[in-house]
Design a protein around this nucleic acid. Sequence first.
DNA 1: CTTAAACTGAACCATTTGGTTCAGTATTGT
DNA 2: ACAATACTGAACCAAATGGTTCAGTTTAAG
Lengths: 103, 103
Amino acid sequence: MVQFKTPVDRAFAALADPTRRAVLERLGAGHATISELAEPFGMSLTGMKKHVLVLEEANLVITEKVGRARKCVLAPYAFEGISMWLQRLDRFAQVVQRTKGAR
Amino acid sequence: MVQFKTPVDRAFAALADPTRRAVLERLGAGHATISELAEPFGMSLTGMKKHVLVLEEANLVITEKVGRARKCVLAPYAFEGISMWLQRLDRFAQVVQRTKGAR
DNA sequence: CTTAAACTGAACCATTTGGTTCAGTATTGT
DNA sequence: ACAATACTGAACCAAATGGTTCAGTTTAAG
């Protein structure tokens, strides 16, 4: 089974790592370079670059080479797919709750 | 660094696996046993049991031993934590969009 | 021109993950 | 009582993951 990965697949997989979620939070405050993202974690540039690549392939961030630096930005509409998945399941969870008898 | 895992950590990690997300969808349709969950994947009971354990430790499902079977249910309020995390980040993504000049 | 900064690609490595089989235990059906 | 069902725990395994270092390349600064 070759199993090609869907966008939702990649998004959830990308979000599974705490470092990557922290990167997203950091990018919420504005764009940053690989160096700037790596520094607070005391991580190598190469290591951070790989995280950013995962986020990029999951369509959660967009990057662009600017001079010798790479500018990373939070992607617009980044969380649409997984938000919809979550909302759907959340409704089911609420149904479970309701049919449990509680008013 | 011992890094004890937060609930949000566990939830996102649990959701990263497609099989586990499928299990959650299945449980959205109502409770099921380990055997019933394993069958559509052609997976061993042991394998499915481990997935269910992960979901349980992430507070996404609740299980209960009933006779020789184990009844698995979608947890109420399962997705509260990650929904809030997502909503916060989603607002940032929208800000990025807005300051991009559009409107 | 020369150096330093910022990234990149390749290779490597330890740990985690997602599965398996095998050998039980506990419940249920005949 | 006996056999079948349903799960469980231990041990094992291959592949994926999250990092590293080292050796470049490209761009910016002096």
